[in-house]
């Protein structure tokens, strides 16, 4: 299973980025291969508009199974992510990636539900 975290850094003890569209990094953990990889999303900070859909598109290309984030994607990004079958967990905004992963494993993170 491929798990993606919105992240402010590249380490397990880095904080989760509570924002979706303008997250600095994607921290990608493949728990079958026990492999970590990083995707940089820093260019989203330059977007005046539409950072959410753009970031969602990047995430789509990563082919992940699970997204763990803080506040949850906005409406536009959620529209994109709804097409992907990705499971989105929120509420990890003030955790480190490691803590967020443990919380996810113990079913402590709420599942995000899009409005539409």
């Amino acid at each position: 299973m491929k798990i993606v975290f919105t992240a402010k850094g590249k380490e397990w003890n880095s904080p989760v980025d509570p924002r979706f569209g303008r997250t600095e990094y994607f921290f990608i953990y493949d728990d079958e291969k026990n492999e970590v990889s990083i995707a940089n999303n820093a260019d989203s900070s330059k977007e005046a508009h539409g950072a959410g859909p753009k970031t969602a598109q990047k995430l789509f290309d990563l082919n992940a199974d699970v997204l763990i984030t803080g506040n949850g994607p906005g409406e536009n990004a959620a529209t994109v992510l709804n097409q992907t079958g990705l499971k989105i967990y929120v509420g990890a905004g003030d955790m480190t990636i490691k803590d967020a992963y443990d919380a996810f494993k113990n079913d402590k993170l709420p599942l995000f539900k899009a409005k539409k």
Binding site: G50, P53, K54, V80, Q83
Partner: peptide
Amino acid sequence: HAVIQLGTMILVF
């Protein structure tokens, strides 16, 4: 980013 391509789909915002 009002037009996004997702696989075989085009989404308009």
